[in-house]
Design a protein around this nucleic acid. Structure first.
Lengths: 113, 113
DNA sequence: TTGACGCATGCCCATATGGGAATATGATTG
DNA sequence: CAATCATATTCCCATATGGGCATGCGTCAA
């Protein structure tokens, strides 16, 4: 099968560093493709492609303004990701005396291999 | 270049649905590879491969117990993902009267295309 | 030592990139 | 209509899967 299509869900769309940069930049407001490309140091086609992915999963919206196309953030799709990871919060906050002990045991066990 | 290696960072590792299932299941406690495979309906090699990815990005720890290998959750790596998405919280919570209006404008603009 | 069991790997395949370059598409202006 | 600007697409390539299957490897029991 190969990997899931990056356009299939938000998790995949956000797995790409440059796309995360785009989203971060769009927090400051709408941008045209060229502006995005310049500010993030990518080519215009490159920006377009990433924007397409983001658009298809609904993380950005585009709007035509003259011959430009302004892209804006629609972060609602990130909420599921935030909530999913949030479901693990108690695990990374777990009292470290227990976690550290656990990790220590692991290392010891591995040394004994 | 092709896509970034899934073992390169947590975002990629978590982009795979089955790997998210594994992590979710491990919240209930350590599991052997076979147990995981059975409970999630995947083959043993399949489980092993996903576990390897998770291990390489540090989301799980393994421990030898007899001829079994117990995998346990180490969710600390998920924190950056949670925080990154958290940086968009105010955008998805943004007063919907404004967002809805924005979206409405977008749709209208698109119909006029 | 020989099996049997539990996992990890290696192979092969089909698929989905992400990047670069060239080009098609759309829209605006003269 | 022609020229130009802003984007989107298309090709082509190298790479990284994820899945299925067979197999190697380490461990424990008889």
């Amino acid at each position: 099968m190969a990997r899931a299509a990056t356009t299939s869900d938000v998790f995949n769309a956000v797995a790409e560093p440059q796309r995360r940069e785009i989203l971060a930049l769009l927090r400051a407001g709408e941008r045209s493709v060229t502006e995005l490309a310049q500010e993030l140091g990518m080519t215009q086609p490159g920006a377009s492609k990433h924007l397409r992915v983001l658009r298809e999963v609904g993380l950005v919206r585009d709007r035509k303004v003259g011959k430009q196309r302004l892209y804006g953030l629609d972060a609602r799709g990130l909420r599921p990701v935030h909530e999913w990871t949030g479901g693990f919060e108690r695990f990374w906050n777990e009292s470290f005396d227990r976690l550290d002990e656990y990790v220590r045991d692991l290392k010891q066990a591995q040394q004994e291999e």
